[in-house]
Design a protein around this nucleic acid. Structure first.
Lengths: 203, 203
DNA sequence: TGGATTATTGACCAAACGGTCAGGATCAGG
DNA sequence: CCTGATCCTGACCGTTTGGTCAATAATCCA
């Protein structure tokens, strides 16, 4: 095993700077579209200096992706089997919409990765993610069997929540262009989705 | 005005070949991720030959995008104000889901473009598209005012349909990874969405 | 069939890109 | 204040990429 020395103060700061800059770059241009120069400039570092902290562009991307994945999946884990079914689902929808509003770059980063066939995430998708979703599906199906939630396909219920909440981050330009000025997409979406899932899931 | 000579047989064939190859390349790698060599190989042409038919990579992309946009927006225009409200909406959902199933590359091409801020489409989004959506919104609102459809925000109703149907094309890898083998995502989604919009919109 | 038009390509170019390296600046600890 | 470790950079390298061009091949039509 390698000693794995603890990072110095400067290392901490610069690694964070780089990852922050990389998040912006990768999320708006995809992996291939983003350049190290771009990241370096956004982080106010020289290109060789960026490559002093990360061995390659790939390593920056990989680090960013895995570091963000956990955060991204947290809300789904908070679905409480002992809670009030409808309220639990609505809370999940709210959480996901808030994440789209407050962390649109993260959402777009994952969107890019999946769109391009998820070369880095494939194993996680059909591993950790599948298990996590599996648990949620069991919980949801339990509620439906008990007659506390209208019976719908639980997998597709989850997909629908992902699709509709992330849409407001990933397709933000389109949403705003179509709505025109004088709209607050996220506020309106909050009300719309609350109503939608109440109607769909109320027994 | 330029004479604009009519294309020869060979021009017709090779332009189509190139656009077909470009659709595959751009949809799976985005604009920057795709290369002219890649397109040339997929079209079984040499790179200079590709550039003989299109002046630049940009021109290929632009041509592809505008040529596909009309097809992409057709279903929304078919919303008939004189039809049965619920049935009209359900038909639109069905049409959009079929397009996701049969033309996933087109869906991903647009997804990439919007994700990256829609540099080429911005004017269309807040022009033609906004108008088109505006008409549909008027129709929907009319139905709701007449009490023939449950009252929901028409704009976000349309967004929800886009989000949920295109999700199955754009996030195909994720959907399949989470579902595991032995599933037909599009068939299941068809039933799920039919039920969803019935429950949401029934008076 | 001949000559003009159209189609095709190998060789090439400049810019952008990911990455390396030797050497100098800075910093932390004794 | 010295010394070793960490930090930083200008110059450089090989490759990829978008695009050009002169020359050759195929096609068309009078």
């Amino acid at each position: 095993m390698e000693p794995e020395p603890k990072p110095t103060r400067i290392q901490q700061k610069n690694r964070d700077l780089i990852l922050e800059a990389a998040l912006s770059a990768f999320s708006s241009n995809g992996f291939r579209g983003a350049t190290i120069d771009q990241i370096a400039e956004a982080a106010s570092l020289s290109k060789p200096n960026v490559l002093y902290y990360f061995r390659s562009k790939d390593e920056i991307y990989q680090t960013l992706l895995t570091r963000l994945l956990e955060t991204w999946l947290t809300p789904l884990q908070q679905l409480d089997p002992n809670g009030e079914p409808l309220e639990e689902v609505l809370q999940y929808v709210r959480d996901k919409l808030i994440m789209s509003r407050d962390f649109p770059r993260e959402s777009r980063l994952f969107a890019h990765e999946i769109l391009e066939g998820a070369p880095q995430l494939e194993s996680i998708l059909s591993g950790e993610l599948r298990d996590l979703v599996g648990k949620a599906v069991t919980t949801l199906r339990g509620w439906m069997d008990q007659g506390r939630l209208a019976p719908v396909d639980p997998h597709h219920l989850i997909f629908s929540i992902w699709a509709m909440t992330q849409h407001y981050a990933d397709f933000d330009v389109q949403v705003r262009a179509v709505l025109g000025p004088g709209h607050d997409p996220f506020a309106e979406a909050g009300a719309f989705l609350d109503n939608l899932y109440r109607r769909m899931l109320a027994v």
